[in-house]
């Protein structure tokens, strides 16, 4: 994004109201940066529900299978040993480790998926648009790649009417 416009609000309710106004004018808001999760914002921007839970399920299923069958393989095929009168294929004994493996893999699968999907990680080079968005500012970003100069003016007026503060054009 080389050419864009930022503006901010001081309150999440003003933000939601303003966003509705801006979007009803047919202007597409590229992104909104907020200090905390604002409920209803994802709907205003038009985001789909995150599908991360599918990855957690796959991780959990994989953990269950690996955990269970590894123990079963060790005790029935690779090195069967009799312990305390238990059968070799001792299903109740395998449950705790199976469960822990399921939780471990599910949790790590989803966290790594989340970090990759969000472009987060040590040394990540994400642009920080405004240092106050982690404090008390609600920043909106509008990409102006395909807009001509007069259209930009129009966008600025819409933003002003929607109560946005600190409208700045960045090229």
């Amino acid at each position: 994004m080389n050419k864009y416009l930022t503006a901010y609000y001081n309150d999440e309710e003003d933000l939601l109201e303003g966003l509705n106004k801006i979007q009803s004018e047919g202007i597409k808001v590229t992104d909104v940066l907020t200090p905390f999760p604002v409920h209803g914002l994802d709907k205003v921007i038009g985001l789909r529900r995150s599908r991360l839970s599918v990855i957690a399920f796959i991780g959990g299923a994989l953990g269950t299978l690996i955990g269970f069958f590894f123990q079963a393989w060790v005790f029935t095929v690779d090195y069967p040993l009799a312990f305390g009168g238990k059968p070799f294929f001792a299903v109740p004994s395998f449950m705790p480790v199976t469960f822990e493996m399921a939780v471990l893999l599910a949790a790590y699968a989803i966290v790594f998926a989340y970090l990759i999907h969000n472009n987060l990680g040590p040394g990540s080079k994400n642009i920080i648009y405004d240092e106050r968005i982690t404090d008390d500012r609600f920043l909106i970003l509008i990409s102006l790649e395909d807009k001509a100069d007069d259209q930009i003016k129009e966008v600025e007026t819409v933003l002003e009417n929607a109560g946005a503060l600190g409208i700045t054009l960045k090229v």
Partner: peptide, 8 residues
Amino acid sequence: FGWTGSVR
């Protein structure tokens, strides 16, 4: 980790 606080 490069947190930006975007809605996504």
